[in-house]
Computed example of a mutant assay.
Amino acid sequence: MNPETHPAPAVTAARIVLLTSSHRVAPGLLSWPAWRTLRAADLVLCADAEHPQLPYLVEAGVAVEVAAPGARELVDAAGDDRTVVVLVGGEGDRALTDGLARLAGSGRERMPELELLPGSYDLPGARLLDLVEVMDRIREACPWSSQRTHKDLAKYGIEEAYELVEAIEEGDRESLREELGDVLLQVVFHARIAQEHAEEPFSVDDVAATIVEKLIHRHPHVFGDETARTPEDVKAHWLRTKAIEKQRDSVTDGVPLAQPGLALAAKLAGRARTAGLEVPLPEGEGVGYALLRLAAGAEAEGTDPEAALRAAARAYRDAIRAAE
């Protein structure tokens, strides 16, 4: 092609702006560049009549035309000097951007300036909102999930916790990510069920608010005036604050007796040691008392007897497989 007879198309002063916004941020919370562009636009288009931003744009005096033009129509609408804003979803509009790219790449169009303008961004933790929304839909529409109770799900909480521990001990990062999600699902599922309680309903927001309040209260060295220079100082703060909160009569209160035996023995020994109680281990014959002594000794040395036994059991498993 001879460039003298086929000069490159001139770039106009027009603009086509694809404005994205996250559905995980409250509608109307757009960046200043987004609002400035919307107010100055000659034409604002949106293909989705139910787009959550539309009522707020109208309230702000921004006229929006509900339409779904293709790339060719957008370029024509922009003309030589107009700014056209297209409000799209948070993931953009692949078909539209591909169409505009084809026109720009043809070398035969007087293309307006093309801009992708994020109007809002996800905040850290925003994807948790997706999980809550998905759980709501599953609870309403799934024949199995809609019938589950807290008691039905209890065993799954235990299973998922063990699978998480296994992923941690195996050092498997991919499994760790997956198992953390499975544990998180249990929390969200239980909270969703709790919303339906007739007398004492609570939601996942209430669950989050409770743990936030607890964490702040039990970390006065972070959120208050107290100081803690060592992990031991932090633990002392935690236990002291917890004791005041729970108003317990014994250091053993709150220790779940249904947990595995080695973990239970170590927990009890740790509570007694932290409280400064010198309580002799009960005398007795048999493997139970022998394991109690081993668990208490491991805890005093800073070793988790459950984790130690699991590591030994894995080594035993590997030996069995090698012998097969």
Rank of each mutant, 00 (worst) to 15 (best):
E59H: 15
K246E: 15
A266T: 00
G261D: 12
D93F: 09
A311P: 12
A78M: 05
H6L: 14
V222T: 01
E166K: 06
E278H: 10
V188A: 06
L74T: 08
L277Q: 14
L123P: 11
A307D: 07
G254A: 02
A311T: 10
A228F: 04
P201T: 06
G171S: 05
F189R: 01
D80K: 11
V66P: 07
D98T: 13
W144P: 08
D136E: 13
L129C: 01
K246M: 14
E285I: 06
L57V: 00
E285M: 03
D206N: 09
E178V: 12
S120H: 06
L291P: 10
E109L: 12
G288I: 15
A312H: 04
D76W: 12
V279G: 05
A77W: 03
A41S: 08
V25T: 12
E306S: 10
G79Y: 07
E115F: 03
I138R: 11
P69R: 00
A275G: 09
A191S: 10
A77E: 06
I193L: 06
A154G: 05
V11T: 15
L100W: 04
I216H: 05
R102M: 12
P220R: 00
R229K: 08
S146V: 01
A167S: 13
A68M: 08
P27S: 01
V75L: 00
R321E: 14
R273L: 12
L239K: 09
L268K: 05
L128S: 07
V85D: 06
P220T: 00
E169N: 03
G270A: 11
P201V: 02
T83F: 04
V187I: 14
R72S: 11
R110Q: 15
V66I: 14
S31C: 03
A141N: 12
T149S: 09
D233Q: 01
H217E: 13
S22Q: 05
H51M: 06
D304N: 09
A272S: 12
V204R: 04
T241K: 00
P3W: 05
D76V: 15
H237C: 02
K155Y: 15
A101H: 08
E65W: 07
S203N: 08
R15W: 13
E306N: 08
D172F: 03
A13I: 08
T230K: 02
G157F: 05
G171E: 04
A319I: 03
T20K: 01
A63I: 13
V207W: 03
V188L: 02
K242R: 15
E4S: 13
V234K: 00
A263W: 00
R137N: 12
M135H: 10
Q195P: 10
E301I: 05
G61S: 02
V165G: 02
A194I: 03
K214A: 11
H197F: 14
